[in-house]
């Protein structure tokens, strides 16, 4: 049985009733909500299911005894606002204490919460766009070529994917950015498109970067090298969010084969940020996310302190 031969399709049923037309696009509206799902087997997705998921389960497994479940609630270290207290009743309900987000333990290991990749996001910020919006056109064209996505994706985007989006400034920062101004563009990829992008990155882009030893990780924190006192809370929000991010310099854009074929068609080369969004949360989430991402042959190096 030849592998590549597609299934033959019969003739579609005749359309007996005229389809209602979309007033805006002037096109017939299909009677069902069409969504394109996976349309080919995916090599890296298979690699995840046959090899990586097992290894990640073994590497990240933390043993919880059945007698310890459900875990004990944390000790309340500060007073909570109590409406039954007549002193507090008509006073302002101020939040008391922090949420301790940096100390939330990871969920107990189960087959359902093995670290997995949910999405990959590419984000390009262009400072030129602040002076003239038309400078964003090069960014949008580059992202379209890199990801194969457009704003509406031919009307058939996968669930949770929005195509190439414009990023607006959130805050007013003097001399740098203003709120509501278009400052860049981003694209979120899921499913096989996300795995295709990772394959292109590791096979075409990273091997051709000059002086690239790996994605730098922060230096290991130890009592000898850290300038912070041992009691200080050195945990950052990114450490517990399970997102791995890194940047590529502007010259690296020419190494993507999608851009390389007609590099002259773009006004200039842009640097970009790539975010790998995983389902890991809690203490040590970033380590677990890095273990997953390195399974797709993306190297990491520890900065020497």
């Amino acid at each position: 049985m030849p592998l590549a031969r597609p299934t033959r399709f019969g003739k579609p049923p005749p359309i007996r009733k005229r389809l209602p037309a979309d007033t805006r696009r002037k096109l017939p509206r299909p009677p069902v909500n069409l969504r394109v799902r996976e349309y080919a087997p995916c090599r890296l997705s298979d690699h995840y299911h046959t090899t990586l998921s097992d290894n990640l389960m073994y590497m990240n497994y933390s043993h919880t005894l059945q007698s310890d479940l459900p875990p004990k609630p944390p000790r309340e270290i500060r007073l909570r606002w109590d409406p039954s207290n007549p002193y507090a009743k008509y006073r302002k309900n101020d939040p008391v204490g922090g949420t301790q987000w940096s100390k939330i333990p990871p969920e107990p290991s189960t087959p359902a919460n093995i670290t997995r990749l949910e999405a990959v996001q590419i984000h390009i910020m262009s400072k030129d766009a602040l002076t003239s919006r038309s400078n964003l056109l090069g960014v949008i064209a580059a992202l379209r070529a890199l990801s194969g996505e457009t704003e509406a994706g031919g009307g058939a985007l996968a669930k949770g994917v929005k195509g190439v989006e414009i990023v607006l400034g959130k805050k007013q920062v003097g001399g740098w950015i203003r709120a509501g101004m278009p400052a860049g563009a981003k694209v979120t990829l899921k499913g096989s498109a996300m795995y295709d992008l990772i394959a292109t990155l590791t096979e075409f882009v990273l091997p051709r970067l000059r002086e690239f030893h790996g994605i730098p990780m922060p230096a290991a924190v130890s009592s000898h090298t850290s300038y912070l006192p041992a009691s200080s809370n050195a945990v950052k929000a990114s450490d517990v969010a399970g997102v791995v991010s890194f940047g590529l310099p502007a010259p690296a854009m020419g190494f993507w084969p999608q851009i390389e074929v007609n590099q002259d068609a773009y006004p200039k080369m842009y640097g970009m940020h790539i975010h790998f969004i995983t389902n890991a949360v809690g203490v040590g989430a970033q380590e677990r996310a890095r273990a997953l991402v390195s399974g797709f042959q993306i190297p990491f190096v520890r900065k020497s302190s």
Partner: peptide
């Protein structure tokens, strides 16, 4: 990579056709 089953091949062929019809 694993060899797709006849059902998987039919599914992929249908989705690829849909994608081709709807793409820009």
């Amino acid at each position: 990579t694993p060899t797709p089953t006849p059902f998987e091949r039919a599914y992929y062929a249908y989705q690829a056709r849909l994608r081709r019809a709807l793409s820009n």
